[in-house]
Nucleic acid binder design. Structure first.
Ligand SMILES: [Zn+2]
Ligand SMILES: [Zn+2]
Ligand SMILES: [Zn+2]
Ligand SMILES: [Zn+2]
Lengths: 164, 164
DNA sequence: CGGAGACTCGTTATACTATTGCAAACTCAG
DNA sequence: CTGAGTTTGCAATAGTATAACGAGTCTCCG
């Protein structure tokens, strides 16, 4: 069973987790990200914190411009490079992922080690669940051809348990 | 060994296959696509044929606007919907694939049955190889969560054998 | 034949996603 | 303090994809 530890946007799942301060670690908190940055000598600036907060707060993955709209603050409309630079940092350091088929971003559900997430995207309710596949199948296929895999994108579209 | 039957943009591979009329089926021909459309009651129109031809002719995956540039003909510059509609048809019917991480398109290397291709993308030389994974392990991971997979995107970035 | 319905196409405009370039401000080690 | 490296503000631009609508075309059936 992979559901433990998965961050998901599922309505039913979110209901269970709803607004509990001490939840079952379906994702990080801002303080945990900050601590991780401190340990690793990374600068968790205001902008980055703000973008991370927006991602953590969102039930579903967000597009860069959707994040931009939530970047309140100075009144003047924020500029795209602002959010893209923050996203580069968060994705590059494993705090968030980009979902390539949607051009959206979401907070990582399995922080800690670097990993290759698998996203299960429901056509019906648009929920997205980050699952974890221990040893990538791609690795095997690639090995047969001599290709050296350094990173992979795995995204599946289908129907989630609740919609079925 | 997966190399047989794989369409690849590899320089060394292309060299072997170069310009031979009777090659080892590293990909389709336009006539084969036309025949397949006839069998299936699909309309292989001029525009679709033209786009398919451009994809088959290209060593590497192409962006929609790169295809557009090659759409010679009437003199007037072709419009985006023209190529996107043709690509929708080709991808929807399994004659081509979209590579999500690059927003590019490429002719299918394993035509016949519908399948879930795996793309191996070399960082160094930009070659792209379409590999085939028999039964997707994504399926297994998803089954554990009750998710019903209908389609998947598998793309790996790394170093190809020739660049290693 | 002739009309209905489905599909295809031309065209214009627009929406959405992402990057470049440069200068100013900040951070931190030496 | 000083200089190198990083982050930010800002303006412009590049790149990817779709909406909308009308006109044309094909196919099937009466
Ligand atoms: Zn993750
Ligand atoms: Zn669902
Ligand atoms: Zn294929
Ligand atoms: Zn290579």
């Amino acid at each position: 069973m992979l559901s433990f530890g998965c961050r998901t946007t599922h309505p039913s799942f979110r209901k269970q987790q709803k607004m509990t301060a001490a939840h079952t670690h379906d994702h990080l908190t801002l303080d945990e990200v900050a601590a991780s940055c401190r340990e690793r000598g990374l600068r968790f600036t205001d902008i980055r914190r703000q973008v991370m907060g927006i991602l953590l707060n969102s039930e579903k993955p967000l597009g860069a411009y959707a994040i931009l709209e939530q970047m309140t603050g100075d009144g003047s409309p924020a500029q795209p490079p602002k959010v893209y630079r923050a996203l580069d940092f968060l994705v590059g350091n494993g705090f968030a992922h980009k979902i390539a088929t949607q051009s959206t971003f979401t907070a990582c559900a399995h922080p800690g080690q670097p990993h290759t997430p698998t996203f299960l995207i429901c056509k019906s309710c648009d929920s997205v669940t980050e699952a974890e596949i221990p040893s990538s199948p791609i690795q095997e296929a690639a090995k047969a051809t001599g290709f050296k895999v350094e990173g992979a994108v795995l995204e599946a579209e289908g129907i989630c348990p609740d919609c079925a």
